[in-house]
């Protein structure tokens, strides 16, 4: 390794090495100590799958049995987006296209691919009911489509206002929370979906989650990809 790379002092490295080795030994012992002769929670999930409104166990866990985790997860996503927008997103040029002069091949390819990615996202959302897929995968594909368009030089369209974007970013969380609280008026506890409406409620939540996650991922990328020239000029480093 090149000696010019700044390294931690030797003492820190030795202590870190010892710490990590000791921790690794403990971790391996702990992992191997987990008994293999149990059946986990899979039978429980399989038994109650009919109550969940969906047929895929992972989706059932995410959107029904442990939907509290998912509710907090989308809250974390919204908070992280607010954080990124606050730290990096105040720059006036943030919402300009990432590439100033778009490569014509890339931009044509992006124009061709984006509709198919939206289609794939819709498919994944629908497939999540009975097969691997669901809101997170669908949202990821939707977000990737947006990142691709941004990289190919497509700017935020004029009709997408900053306020509108913030609404889209938070709509998944708002709808999820509204449904979570709303079912309490039907006599349940927080997030306890009535069995007859479970499928519809899960699908509504998933649809809005997909839209929000897609918008969040695009916003994280675009807001983070702010131009550096002004920053360089400010710090006096660079050219």
């Amino acid at each position: 390794m090149a000696s010019a790379v700044p390294e931690s002092p030797r003492g820190v490295r030795l202590a870190a090495g010892a710490l990590c080795a000791g921790f690794g030994v403990l971790l391996v012992r702990a992992v191997l100590a987990i008994p293999e002769d149990h059946s986990g929670l899979a039978p429980v999930v399989a038994e109650r799958l009919v109550d969940s409104g969906v047929k895929h166990p992972v989706t059932a866990v995410l959107l029904n049995f442990r939907s509290y985790d998912t509710l907090l997860e989308i809250a974390v996503l919204v908070l992280a987006t607010i954080g990124v927008l606050s730290v990096a997103g105040s720059h006036p040029r943030v919402w300009a296209p990432v590439a100033e002069e778009a490569d014509p091949v890339l931009s044509a390819l992006a124009r061709l691919l984006a509709p198919f990615m939206v289609l794939a996202s819709g498919y994944l959302l629908w497939a999540g009911e009975h097969a691997p897929g669901g809101a997170f995968q669908a949202g990821a594909v939707l977000g990737a489509a947006g990142v691709l368009l941004a990289l190919a030089g497509y700017a935020r369209p004029a009709w997408v206002t900053k306020f509108g974007l913030r609404v889209v970013i938070s709509v998944g969380f708002i709808v999820f929370l509204a449904i979570a609280v709303g079912v309490m008026f039907l006599g349940g506890v927080l997030l306890e979906y009535p069995r007859d409406y479970a499928k519809a409620l899960v699908l509504i939540v998933e649809t809005w989650l997909t839209v929000s996650i897609g918008a969040i991922l695009v916003s994280l990328f675009i807001a983070s990809a702010s131009p550096i020239e002004e920053l360089r000029a400010r710090t006096g480093s660079g050219r």
Partner: peptide, 13 residues
């Protein structure tokens, strides 16, 4: 690390 043929869906989620 379970006896059932399908993996436990909870860690996956």
């Amino acid at each position: 690390r379970v006896m059932t043929p399908d993996p436990d869906p909870l860690p996956h989620a």
